[in-house]
Every structure is written in structure tokens, then in C-alpha cells.
Design a protein around this nucleic acid. Structure first.
Length: 269
DNA sequence: CGCCAGGGGAGCT
DNA sequence: AGCTCCCCTGGC
């Protein structure tokens, strides 16, 4: 059990920000998270966070996962003070962090996300994990499941994933898994690429367009300059910016600002 | 029952 | 860059 006082961290906001589909609210102050083969519970009261895990896992994994070394207050402070909308949005979502999640899981998750709502995305992913992931047991003695590796999903038929409620998106996931297994796209090399190059590489995957590629860059490769444009961001841009968000003001951390706008649009107002 | 929207994408012009 | 068509579920 690890206790820390953390600034600009709100596990509830992170859970609702739509970047992680394997985080659940257990009760008012407690959330559970599954990442790789690890299970964590966090309790938060104000700035005081309790991580229910071993010191070693916290230092070697979760600290990085939650991007705790990064100063998000510094990002928020750079919001243009004349941009009242953005200043308010950043304040409203000031506890959000860009999680450092698994590249393959993010790729599959955001393939599933298209023309889909967050609740059903969660259910799709839970179905896939329960059916094709590996079983583990948490510290409470409860079972949980890992996200299946590319080679597992590559061996499936499209209809197998339709049974997981993916609908027409199942062919995207199966074909992409095969592209990774047969080496058409080298996932290990993506981590060493700059944003633009990684994005171009991801766009080669069947079912990955600009929006999904940027989500993968932001959440799976931690490229903070990636700025996914979806329907909500587009609506906000029309309402408040005459059509296009001024992301050139935020070079290098465009994606952080995107999250504040997105979170405001789905949870604010 | 029909309609429509949910963090789009492919394929074409 | 903009258009059409594609296409699955759940809510109304």
C-alpha cells in the first residue's frame, strides 16, 4: 500500500476521460485498473492517493502509467488567458493525465471505438479479455483477464469477434492483428519513431484513419503532440473557434489540451 | 416499427 | 478536401 499526495490528479476524471476502457469505479473514492497483467486499486481523498500495490510495482510500473513525473499544472498554465473556454475546460479537467498504456491494446481499443459509445466499447473489450485473455487473480482473490496478444486475435475468424459484440469492427481488429504478427507494421519500432512517422505507419493498418491513429499515438505512444479530432472536438471547434482549434499555440502538448476540451464536451456543461 | 447517433473509415472524385 | 457509402447496436 502506497500513499502519495499528488497535484493535478483525479482518478475519477481519468476514468471518465475516455482514454482507458479498463478502469472501473468500485465505490465513491475507489477505482480498479487493469493494465498488462497487473491489477491495481486506487483510493483518492482530495490530493491523498492510496495505491493498493507493492512498492516495486508502483515505482516500476504505475508511476509511469499515470505519468506522475509530469507537471500538468504547467500545461494548464499555458492555456491562452484570453481563451475563456479553454481556461475553463482545463480547470474543469485539471486532474486528467495522459496515461501511458499498452500500444497494442490501444490500437485494438480505438479500432473498436469508431462509431461506438464508451459504454459499449468497455463491454466489447471486456468480452474480448474474458474470452481470449489470460486469467489472473487479484489480491482479493478475484479473477481478472489480460488483453489478448496480437497472435491470439490474429488466429481468430471475424465472426469470433462479432460474438464479442464488435459488429463490423471485428474485421478491422483481426486484420490489424495479422498485420502485426506477420510484420507488415513493426510495432516495436514505433516507440522509437517521431510522431509524424509513427502516425504515417499506423495509417497503413486497415481500419485506422487519422482520428484513430492520433488516439493510438497519444495514449499508446505518449506522443503529446497528437491531436485527435472527433465529433466532439469538431463541435467544440465550430462553437468556440470558428471551425478549427488553435493547436499551434500549444506545440508539443496539443494532445493534453485536446483532452481538456474533450472531457469538457462529454462531462462538463 | 423506423430513425438516428455513437470519440469513423475506405474509396472515390 | 470533400463527398458517398459502409455498417453494428442501443436508445427513443
Amino acid at each position: 500500500m502506497i500513499k502519495r499526495m499528488i497535484e493535478y490528479f483525479d482518478i475519477g476524471q481519468i476514468c471518465n476521460s475516455g482514454q482507458c476502457f479498463r478502469m472501473e469505479k468500485k465505490d465513491e473514492n475507489t477505482y480498479s485498473i487493469i493494465a498488462l497483467d497487473k491489477y491495481l486499486e486506487i483510493r483518492q481523498e482530495g490530493k491523498e492517493c492510496t495505491f493498493f500495490c507493492q512498492e516495486e510495482d508502483f515505482e516500476n510500473f504505475w508511476k509511469n502509467y499515470f505519468d506522475l513525473e509530469e507537471d500538468y499544472g504547467a500545461y494548464i498554465a499555458q492555456a491562452d488567458p484570453e481563451d475563456i473556454y479553454l481556461v475553463n475546460a482545463a480547470q474543469f479537467g485539471c486532474g486528467i493525465r495522459i496515461l501511458q498504456q499498452d500500444l497494442w491494446e490501444m490500437t485494438a481499443s480505438f479500432l473498436i471505438s469508431q462509431q461506438n459509445n464508451i459504454q459499449r466499447i468497455r463491454r466489447c473489450i471486456r468480452n474480448i479479455c474474458e474470452r481470449y485473455g489470460e486469467e489472473r487473480v487479484n489480491f482479493r482473490g478475484e479473477q481478472y483477464y489480460t488483453f489478448p496478444a496480437p497472435k491470439v486475435l490474429a488466429g481468430l475468424h471475424e465472426d469470433d469477434l462479432r460474438e464479442c459484440n464488435l459488429g463490423y469492427r471485428s474485421k478491422y481488429v483481426v486484420r490489424t492483428a495479422r498485420s502485426i504478427v506477420n510484420g507488415e507494421v513493426d510495432f516495436k519500432r514505433l516507440h522509437r519513431m517521431e510522431y509524424e512517422e509513427a502516425r504515417t505507419e499506423l495509417l497503413k493498418l486497415y481500419g485506422v484513419g487519422k482520428k484513430v491513429a492520433d488516439c493510438i499515438c497519444l495514449f499508446g505512444l505518449h506522443k503529446l503532440e497528437a491531436f485527435p479530432v472527433d465529433t466532439h472536438i469538431l463541435q467544440a471547434a465550430k462553437k468556440h473557434y470558428g471551425g478549427r482549434f488553435p493547436k499551434e499555440k500549444y506545440l508539443g502538448f496539443e494532445g493534453v489540451m485536446q483532452q481538456y476540451v474533450f472531457y469538457w464536451e462529454i462531462c462538463g456543461g
